[in-house]
Design a protein around this nucleic acid. Structure first.
Length: 277
DNA sequence: GAAAATGTTATCAT
DNA sequence: TATGATAACATTTT
């Protein structure tokens, strides 16, 4: 689950705030039985962390790749990690997720300036963090939760495709404009993701992720692990480039090579000339 | 039915 | 001590 989905979760949990927890069951019930009789004060989200505040205690839920939650419906043949029975007859279920109590207050442990979904998101701060890592591949940068909290593999691939950037391009090979648009577009796409997901149209709007051919040029999509993280990248070799500075360098190298070739040619010609004499 | 995949964390090795 | 590789976890989709 990526960041935008957690914002939706947070909205869906609002009706249960301040209502008494009548019963706690599920795999983690024993260690979480202290929840009984209490009520959720607030929920929050930072990146992919779903935070449940109960007074001054904080539960952190991470859905990882396969986690899910249900409100007033159960998943068949599955035991929830946690099931909260709420006064008034509502039920909250958490499946296949990592639940951990953490030490608050959350404002001191989380920096919302890097959360792509937060109103406190700071372009300046994020750009600085990106520029601090000139040698890294941008595919790795977009998965780094300390820089783009909430961004995941879908967001990574879609953003890079939209910007015509190759996943293996290095931060330092991007022009300053490209570096800035990388930062802006990731947040922008996160919000787009949120709207599409709420409308049930997320998959319909994927351009490159899990696609067979490039929607722009019809060539086959490359799918291979990239960077130090070795997560799969989906990209088009024809439409995504290594960055403006990288291509400038290549062009320059090309020009230098051409000049050298011309010199060699000239030299050869003149030595041929002197041989004739 | 195998393999990959909206991902992170703990543990062991270097 | 820090960095890196590997395993563990868990379940739907391809």
């Amino acid at each position: 689950m990526e960041g935008p989905s957690l914002v939706i979760a947070q909205e869906e949990f609002e009706p249960f705030l301040g209502r008494k927890i009548q019963a706690v069951t599920g795999v983690k019930a024993e260690e979480l039985k202290w929840l009984k009789g209490k009520s959720v004060t607030q929920t929050s989200a930072w990146g992919k962390h779903f935070l449940i505040l109960i007074g001054d205690r904080v539960l952190r839920i991470h859905f990882l790749m396969f986690g899910s939650y249900r409100i007033n419906s159960v998943r068949e043949n599955r035991e929830p990690k946690l099931h909260l029975k709420i006064a008034g007859g509502d039920d909250l279920y958490f499946y296949s997720c990592a639940i951990k109590e953490i030490d608050g207050p959350i404002e001191q442990i989380y920096d919302w300036g890097v959360d792509i979904m937060s109103p406190s998101w700071s372009e300046k701060r994020v750009l600085k963090l990106v520029l601090d890592r000139p040698e890294e591949q941008i595919a790795d940068i977009l998965m780094d939760q300390n820089i783009f909290a909430g961004s995941g593999n879908i967001i990574k691939n879609e953003v890079l495709y939209r910007l015509h950037l190759h996943p293996e391009a290095l931060v330092r090979d991007l022009s300053p404009e490209q570096q800035r648009s990388l930062v802006r577009e990731t947040r922008e796409y996160g919000h787009q993701f949120y709207e599409w997901k709420k409308a049930g149209k997320l998959k319909a709007n994927w351009l490159i992720f899990r696609k067979r051919v490039c929607p722009r040029c019809d060539l086959p999509v490359i799918k291979q692990p990239t960077g130090k993280l070795q997560r799969f990248s989906h990209y088009c070799e024809n439409c995504q480039f290594m960055g403006d500075l990288a291509s400038k360098k290549l062009r320059k190298r090309g020009r230098v090579a051409a000049v050298v070739a011309a010199k060699v040619q000239k030299k050869t010609r003149s030595s041929e000339k002197s041989l004739k004499h």
